[in-house]
Simulated assay, not measured.
Amino acid sequence: MALWVFGYGSLLWNPGFDVAESVIGTLPGYARSFCMRSIHHRGTEENPGLVLALDHQPEHACSGMALRAAPGTEDATIAYLRERELISSAYLETNLQVTLADERVVDAVVYVIDEAHEQYCGGLPLEEQAQIIAQAVGGRGPNTEYLYNTAEHLTSVGLHDADLDWLCARVKSLQ
């Protein structure tokens, strides 16, 4: 059985697994936002950064990429993703339906924010997000790199996120 994964942040530009197919997809009921404090990858416990997560918002839909793992790599892919995405248990691994650009509907593994987790910080004003992202650095590098790579990749596949575009411009002005 095919393993689909929905990417909306770093999975877009750094999936870390062998992708057999990549298709633009839409996930209803969620919004991409910097609503998770990063204490490992893009910040530290003392100086948290911010990473994107899917925040449950019934009136929204998130556009991203549905990534199909190469056949025969499904178990290794899920093990890798769990090690990467569930490092602090702030994400919940769930299976949700994603509508692909070619109108197929697939069940995909999706990592959504646990709103009860201490790293959840939904609703931060964009200016506060920019201030945090401009200075945070974690185990995988500067928070700015995460922002810029995600925004650039979304644009390259024809998806635009107005908040990310604003954040990129503001963070660049702060540096």
Rank of each mutant, 00 (worst) to 15 (best):
L3S: 01
F6G: 04
Y8L: 12
S10E: 11
N14Y: 05
E21L: 13
S22M: 10
V23D: 05
L27I: 04
L27Q: 04
A31R: 15
F34A: 08
C35K: 03
H40S: 09
H40T: 08
H41F: 15
R42W: 12
T44Y: 06
E46I: 00
P48H: 12
V51Y: 01
L54E: 01
L54A: 03
D55P: 00
P58T: 08
A61W: 03
A61R: 10
A61Q: 12
S63H: 07
M65S: 08
M65H: 04
A66E: 04
A66F: 08
L67F: 04
L67S: 03
A69D: 04
E74Y: 10
E74D: 09
D75E: 14
Y80L: 04
L81A: 06
R82V: 00
E83Y: 12
R84Q: 13
E85N: 10
E85S: 11
E85F: 05
I87G: 00
S89Y: 09
L92R: 14
E93A: 15
T94V: 11
N95Y: 07
L96W: 04
L96I: 03
L96P: 00
Q97E: 14
T99E: 15
D102Q: 07
E103K: 13
R104H: 07
D107T: 09
I113T: 06
E118C: 04
E118W: 08
E118I: 06
Q119A: 11
Q119K: 10
Q119C: 09
L124G: 00
L124N: 00
L126N: 01
E128I: 04
I132H: 02
A134C: 08
A136K: 06
V137T: 06
G138S: 04
R140K: 12
T144E: 11
Y146Q: 09
Y148F: 15
A151T: 05
E152C: 08
S156A: 15
G158E: 07
L159T: 01
H160V: 11
D161Y: 02
D163I: 07
L164H: 01
W166P: 00
R170C: 07
V171F: 11
K172L: 11
L174Q: 07
Q175V: 06
Q175I: 07
Q175D: 05
